[in-house]
Nucleic acid binder design. Sequence first.
DNA 1: CGAGACTTTGACCGTAGTCAATTTATGTGG
DNA 2: CCACATAAATTGACTACGGTCAAAGTCTCG
Lengths: 227, 227
Amino acid sequence: MLKAVGVMSRDVKSAVAGAPNQQQANVGRAQDFWRTVQRIPAGAEVAADPESRRRQIVVVSGWIAETRILPDGRRQIFDFLLAGDVASVCDSHMGGRSFIALTNVEIADAAALTSCEGSERASASIAAAIHRREQRLFDHIVRIGRLTAKERVLNLLFELYDRLEAIGLVKDNAFKLPITQEVFADALGLSVVHISRTLKELRGEGMLTIGRGLIALHQRRKFAAVA
Amino acid sequence: MLKAVGVMSRDVKSAVAGAPNQQQANVGRAQDFWRTVQRIPAGAEVAADPESRRRQIVVVSGWIAETRILPDGRRQIFDFLLAGDVASVCDSHMGGRSFIALTNVEIADAAALTSCEGSERASASIAAAIHRREQRLFDHIVRIGRLTAKERVLNLLFELYDRLEAIGLVKDNAFKLPITQEVFADALGLSVVHISRTLKELRGEGMLTIGRGLIALHQRRKFAAVA
DNA sequence: CGAGACTTTGACCGTAGTCAATTTATGTGG
DNA sequence: CCACATAAATTGACTACGGTCAAAGTCTCG
């Protein structure tokens, strides 16, 4: 549990902990929230339980991919959910979408957050998270619709960089990237082979360094043009 | 005004008119709604008025494109808004998005709808419209991320077909398509030239017929595979 | 009828896809 | 700790889908 907290987004932490001056009163409620945390193994689908129909979840730790698989096997990834992100798993399969855990994942009930004290703060955080996700969707459309392969890779990497940095998961310009190149390809509408080549090229240009599961980004400057 | 009504979506009509048994009581409120209607000329941007900051609009007639333009001139269209669709023009420019009228357009205030009698019905309609738009966004991502040019064109045309049919704007398998091929290209992440060629090919295969601003789609069957 | 916008066509190019083989991790059990 | 099995990444050769450029052809609409 402590490990999980270390990995949580500012939003989740502050919303659960409450403002400093009201912390004591919230302990009970916060525990209610923590009791809703559940673990999902890498590769599994994040489904809405049969009981709680429409369900808004908060990611506590790990990576989740929001995807659709076409009848012929082609796959498209819409978005990556990181710690602190919120999603409506309710109608997931309804719209031909599913949430796949890319790593071991911990999720919790967004509803449980709202019922804590400081519910206005929590609701606001949740609304903000949902709003950010919508913005990401637009960015993603531009990415796959109008950027070249190199731009797409860089653009997505920098998005992830910014998001991970915001939740304290970036160290020395580097972060852990627990996804295969195939996942990357399915997010960016490219082939695995071309992802590999593109990364090689970017490595050659000194834009990034890859090693031991970590990826480091350099020269944010040049990137400004792509953002 | 009557002409406008003839073109409205079922949602807008029913929400404004109210259930048959309570129609009389609604006349006053409905007029409030109609008073919020405003006309936007083709090519103009649909902006949130300075007064009403965050603004949810309902499209009454015409076509609107939700777009983003990159610094270097590349353009991506996220979605087309037709009669009955709802959008939050509030943070439009905030997220690098803008709403462009592709034809002369009539829009109204969604808020005014809600304040009419039958507000639960209205709210539900609005929520449904917003939900459908989100689904379209996902479809669009799959389209530009994983479909070939021919598939993209067909898929988008059939989406438009279905939506226009739902609001009574399809006659004899044909509908009015008031957009240039360049707009089509910017929506599908292709070049104008390739759109032209693709349409030619589809015409050759008997999938569609174009003439006098109308486009007719045939053989929905074959399309099932792409849907 | 003429001007400007839109569409179509041809020739050519380049980005990204495909297929297949090889190399490099990543584990896993002995 | 090594050997082996499997997944992931890389590379090469070739293909093809879609982009670009430029010119010609059509529409529209004052």
